[in-house]
C-alpha cells in the first residue's frame, strides 16, 4: 500500500468537497463580498475618497484597494473553514474522516486549502471589481501573491481553531464579529498609521492584520508603514504557531472525540 498515494487522494477529496460546498452556495459565499466591496469602492473610494485627497502619495481609492482586497481574503478564508468544519462536527460527518486512514495533517491541509481557494476566488472577484474604479498597477507580483496566499493560509488556520472549539452557531460568529472585524478595520485598511498619534501608532503595531495589509499594499503600491521582512516574518511565525496548535487539537481530539 502506497500511503502517499492514499494521502494525495484523500487530500484531493477534502479539497474538492470543500470547493463544491462553497460553489454550491455561491450566492451566500461569493456574491456578498463582491457586493460589499463594490459599496466600499463607491462610498469610501469615490464619494468620500475624492474629498479626502491623497494618502502616502496615492489617491485615496488607490490606497484602500489593497486593504479591501486583503480584507475580503481574510474574511472569506476564515469563514469558509469555520463554517464548514463546524458543520462537519455538528452533523457528525467528521466521523467519516476520523474512521478513515487519513492523518491529521491531511485533514488540516485539506480544509486550509479549501479556505484558501475561497479566499483566492473572492480576492480575484474583488480585484476585478476594483479595476472598474481604479487603474491597478502592481509593484511586485511575487510579493503580492506571496502575502495574499500566506494571509489566506493564516486565517484559514484561525477559522479551523475557532471551529474546533465552537459548540454553537453563536461561537462561530462571535470571533469574526468581535475580534476579526475590529482587527481588520484597525489594521490600516482605510488609513496609514502615520496619521495616528504616536501612542496609537504603537498600539496598532500589536495588531497582526496591520502587517499583512501593509505587506500586501507594498506588493501592489510599493508603500508600507511596516518593514516588509518584519511583516513576512510575523505572518510566517503565526502560520507555524497556528499549524502546530491545530495539529495538537486534532491529535488530542479536542471538540471532536470524547
Amino acid at each position: 500500500m502506497n500511503f502517499w498515494r492514499v494521502y494525495r487522494i484523500a487530500f484531493q477529496t477534502i479539497v474538492t468537497k470543500e470547493i463544491l460546498r462553497f460553489m454550491r452556495i455561491w450566492v451566500q459565499t461569493i456574491l456578498p463580498p463582491a457586493i460589499t466591496t463594490t459599496l466600499y469602492f463607491v462610498i469610501f473610494g469615490k464619494l468620500i475618497g475624492e474629498r479626502i485627497g491623497e494618502m502616502e502619495g496615492y489617491s485615496y481609492i488607490d490606497f484602500i484597494v489593497p486593504g479591501l482586497i486583503l480584507m475580503a481574503v481574510i474574511q472569506n478564508s476564515y469563514a469558509n473553514v469555520v463554517s464548514s468544519f463546524f458543520s462537519t462536527k455538528l452533523q457528525h460527518y467528521i466521523e467519516e474522516l476520523l474512521i478513515a486512514p487519513v492523518p491529521n495533517w491531511v485533514i488540516l491541509s485539506g480544509y486550509v486549502v479549501g479556505g484558501v481557494t475561497r479566499g483566492t476566488l473572492v480576492g480575484v472577484v474583488v480585484t476585478i471589481i476594483s479595476l472598474f474604479f481604479t487603474d491597478l498597477q502592481i509593484n511586485s507580483y511575487s510579493i503580492t501573491l506571496l502575502v495574499f496566499v500566506l494571509t489566506s493560509i493564516l486565517f484559514a488556520l484561525a477559522g479551523f481553531i475557532n471551529a474546533v472549539y465552537a459548540q454553537s452557531f453563536d461561537d462561530i460568529s462571535i470571533v469574526p464579529t468581535f475580534v476579526l472585524t475590529p482587527l481588520t478595520y484597525l489594521g490600516g485598511v482605510f488609513y496609514s498609521i502615520s496619521l495616528l498619534p504616536s501612542f496609537w501608532q504603537n498600539v496598532s503595531l500589536i495588531n497582526p492584520v496591520l502587517y499583512m495589509v501593509n505587506a500586501f499594499r507594498f506588493g501592489i503600491l510599493g508603500v508600507s508603514d511596516i518593514d516588509l521582512v518584519v511583516a513576512l516574518g510575523i505572518i510566517l511565525v503565526f502560520i507555524v504557531l497556528l499549524t502546530l496548535f491545530s495539529l495538537s487539537l486534532l491529535s488530542r481530539g479536542v471538540g471532536i472525540k470524547n
Binding site: 487522494i9 477529496t13 477534502i14 463544491l20 487519513v102
Partner: peptide, 14 residues
C-alpha cells in the same frame, strides 16, 4: 453518490 465517492476518497480509492 457523492457521499460514497468522498468516503472512498478518504481511503485513497481512485
Amino acid at each position: 453518490e457523492e457521499i460514497l465517492l468522498n468516503q472512498a476518497g478518504y481511503y485513497g480509492i481512485p
